[in-house]
């Protein structure tokens, strides 16, 4: 048992947009060194949960709390949360034409970890080895952020940022989708090296179990209609792969069996 507060603790989180509820009471606790998976079919609220933890201004939290290392972060701006140690690997990373990758990385590391962390030979070494690990050519640094990147390049670039920023809490929103098996292995290696044996933690959002073969989660949670309806060990991911999500829909709610086939790819 850890005596330190968990890296992430969410209690009874209710949130939505323009009076439409999306999250209906979420509880989640991730201890340091742990990797959890959040699974659920499209539209269940996974990205919304990630956005709310990161501080997306569009969503409104009506109830509950989100704590990072025992400190409530809901009043903090996104950049303050980033500086406090939250990192989100986006499902859809945004392009910023004209902003060079190298410049962006240096500025982001400086903003989050301080000016000193972004200069000198050590930063350059870390950058070089992370890029080698992710199989990225040096010329990547001269490209514009996510501008004209392939799906796989975008995801690898998110992981590169993760490896340089070394956050306390890494949330990876569908980072595995759009990657081939080698890409998934590379990304998994990046996540493992960032979290295992450290005081960091990760939340992997996915609707496939494939990545979970390479990043063995300590816990798997199933999100349906903005609620965590079941939590379990890594075996739960395999069970979902076989049985879909229907059996988990709380009684009294509509079955959506017609969409299950679509989410099993």
């Amino acid at each position: 048992m850890s005596v330190d507060p968990p890296v992430l603790e969410i209690r009874d989180l209710h949130a939505g947009i323009d009076d439409t509820p999306i999250l209906n009471g979420i509880d989640l606790k991730i201890e340091s060194g742990e990797i959890h998976a959040l699974m659920g079919r499209n539209g269940s609220g996974k990205t919304t949960a990630a956005n709310i933890i990161m501080g997306h201004p569009e969503f409104e939290v009506s109830q509950g709390s989100v704590e990072l290392n025992g400190k409530d972060i809901l009043e903090m701006k996104p950049w303050e949360r980033a500086r406090a140690g939250v990192f989100l690997s986006f499902q859809y990373p945004q392009a910023v034409p004209g902003l060079q990758v190298g410049n962006f990385l240096r500025k982001s590391v400086a903003a989050i970890n301080g000016e000193d962390a972004a200069k000198g030979p050590e930063f350059r070494r870390t950058l070089k080895s992370a890029m080698a690990e992710l199989d990225m050519p040096r010329s990547f640094l001269g490209r514009y952020v996510n501008d004209g990147f392939s799906g796989g390049e975008k995801k690898r670039f998110e992981i590169l940022q993760l490896m340089l920023i070394k956050p306390k809490l890494a949330i990876l929103d569908e980072t595995d989708s759009g990657l081939d098996i080698d890409g998934i292995k590379t990304v998994a290696k990046g996540i493992n090296s960032a979290v295992r044996g450290s005081d960091s933690a990760a939340l992997i959002i996915t609707h496939y179990s494939r990545i979970l073969e390479h990043v063995k989660p300590d816990r798997v949670h199933v999100l349906i209609k903005g609620r965590i309806v079941k939590s379990g060990g890594p075996e739960l991911a395999l069970e979902l792969e076989e049985r879909g999500y229907d059996w988990l829909i709380p009684s009294g709610e509509d079955s959506e069996s017609e969409t299950v086939a679509a989410t099993k790819d």
Binding site: N51, M54, G55, H56, P57, E58, K77, P78, W79, R81, A82, R83, F87, L88, F90, Y92, P93, Q94, A95, V96, P97, G98, L99, Q100, F104, K107, S108, A111, I112, Y144, V145, Q161, I165
Partner: peptide, 30 residues
Amino acid sequence: VSDEQLFYLMSRGHAENEALAMIVNGFFEP
């Protein structure tokens, strides 16, 4: 300039005005 673009940059530790300046600088980069 989209909110999503700003949010992406803000999530990387950049305050709102800074994020906007990055987008604008980038636009003018050529």
